[in-house]
């Protein structure tokens, strides 16, 4: 029997959040954490609330804090996160909780939108694709794969303190994804918008983001690249 402690909060009935314990029979299988939540919802308490969609780690719905570490419930096996017999599941830290494990991600999305996460190139497009060498394309590897699960940003203390002003690791990774794209021509404008004391420079290289990213991406490195670009721009 696996002991699961779940963060519960329903704004309609609860004054404050509390932890609720469930004993879940995993029948010895090394389930994913999402499977455990599905079991609880189906067999114990239908009111347990969380987001999920693809269940294979590409949609980014089920970012949660499991035994103290952010990750995707659908690709986190119990063997990886449970030491001993206890699994503690909380919502992603630092964002307002809507209900149970569901957080309000508006601040996170707002930071994403702030970096203008779309290709900008006003020159008339050719009749076919814009050409790009495999080397130029390779610069986007490790950047475009982000699934916006928010595991990184919600593990970042700088984002906890300034979610409205610090873009956060996820947003900055996207910012660099377009700065690094040989087809994008808005580099100057993008950099100018990032050169304030908060957007980029609140990153203190703590690297929690790198530690938790379920896709193995490295936002800190991308932020370093942005800093270098800002430096080159100024000199």
């Amino acid at each position: 029997m696996l002991q699961v402690s779940l963060y519960r909060y329903n704004p309609e009935t609860d004054d404050s959040p509390f932890m609720q314990d469930f004993s879940v029979d995993t029948r010895g299988r090394d389930l994913m954490v999402l499977d455990v939540l599905e079991l609880i919802k189906a067999e114990h308490d239908g009111s347990v609330t969380y987001r999920r969609s693809c269940r294979e780690g590409v949609c980014g719905s089920d970012g949660l804090n499991m035994n103290g570490k952010n990750g995707l419930a659908c690709i986190t096996p119990l063997s990886e996160t449970v030491k001993g017999e206890k699994l503690v599941i909380r919502p992603l830290p630092g964002l307002p909780v809507i209900r149970d494990l569901v957080v309000d991600m508006s601040l996170f999305y707002a930071q994403y939108e702030k970096v203008q996460p779309y290709l900008q190139n006003p020159t008339p497009a050719p009749a076919i694709e814009r050409l790009q060498t495999p080397e130029e394309r390779a610069r986007l590897d490790g950047l475009y794969e982000c699934i916006l699960c928010a595991c990184c940003s919600t593990s970042c203390p700088s984002f906890w303190w300034n979610p409205d002003r610090f873009v956060g690791p996820a947003g900055l990774l996207q910012a660099y994804r377009f700065l690094a794209d040989s087809r994008d021509t808005a580099t100057e404008d993008r950099l100018a918008k990032l050169d304030d004391p908060f957007s980029v420079f609140r990153c203190h290289g703590i690297q929690n983001c790198v530690n938790v990213c379920p896709k193995g991406l490295n936002p800190t490195k991308a932020i370093g690249h942005i800093r270098t670009m800002l430096l080159n721009r100024a000199t």
């Binding site: 918008k193 990032l194 050169d195 304030d196 004391p197 908060f198 957007s199 420079f201 800002l230 430096l231």
Partner: peptide, 18 residues
């Protein structure tokens, strides 16, 4: 762009460089 009058310098980069 986020600005704050109490910042030491004009930009995040110069703060960082300083």
């Amino acid at each position: 762009m986020v600005t704050s009058v109490t910042s030491f310098s004009r930009t995040g980069l110069s703060d960082w460089l300083i």
